[in-house]
Amino acid sequence: MKILVCISKTPDTTSKIAFKDNNTQYDENGVQWILNPYDEWYALVRAIELKEKDASIGIDLVTVGLADSEPIIRKALALGGDVAHRINAASNDSYYVAYQIAELAKKEQYDLVFTGKETIDFNSSSIGGMVAELLDMPYVSLACKFEINGTTATINREIEGGEEVNEVVLPVVVSCQKDMAAQRIPNMRGIMAARTKPLHVIEPVAVDALTTIVKYELPPARQSVKLISPDNVAELARLLRDEVKAF
């Protein structure tokens, strides 16, 4: 069985958010890049856990990104991916990225495609659904548990106020989130092994982007907090009623 894990690089959560060139570009100056947490902790680690139970499983990684993505690819290989594919293109539009991933998947015929639930920079939560549609496969999003039995997957996914259990025959595309797997860090052996694992650089196929980012904006500074004395809690209740209209 072959699993494809889609990985992406994002600025660390604590990075300063600033824009340049007339607010048309994200200012990458001083930014610490990380493997998108949902891709790492949930999608990739769950794939590794499955492989630990069944050694016949192979884990491929794919990222659509330029050469500056290689550190996060090496990290994912160090955690336990087997083979990496870097599609050599900047990722600006979800459809463009999904199309590239789907082209690879058509060639390699994966039984399972894992993505994170969203990237923490653009928060699109789009790639998984798009890849599934391009491959005409079922899609289970926001998965928090994933088990496999032969060719059938049992997947818990988040719904309003709870979870729903889905059963589906492979192949399937799954977007992964919290509770899927236990977070881990790469060990020395993994880091050494990652250096010699294959990393294929593939040129993108030509396809048009469907959207363009026109500009960015920072939210207006919040008005400073209105402090209410702990001796006058009733005042907060009044404000919640009259200003916030909470009841």
Partner: peptide, 8 residues
């Protein structure tokens, strides 16, 4: 932050 995205 916010992004303004043009759908083309």
């Amino acid at each position: 932050a916010f992004a303004f995205v043009s759908i083309d």
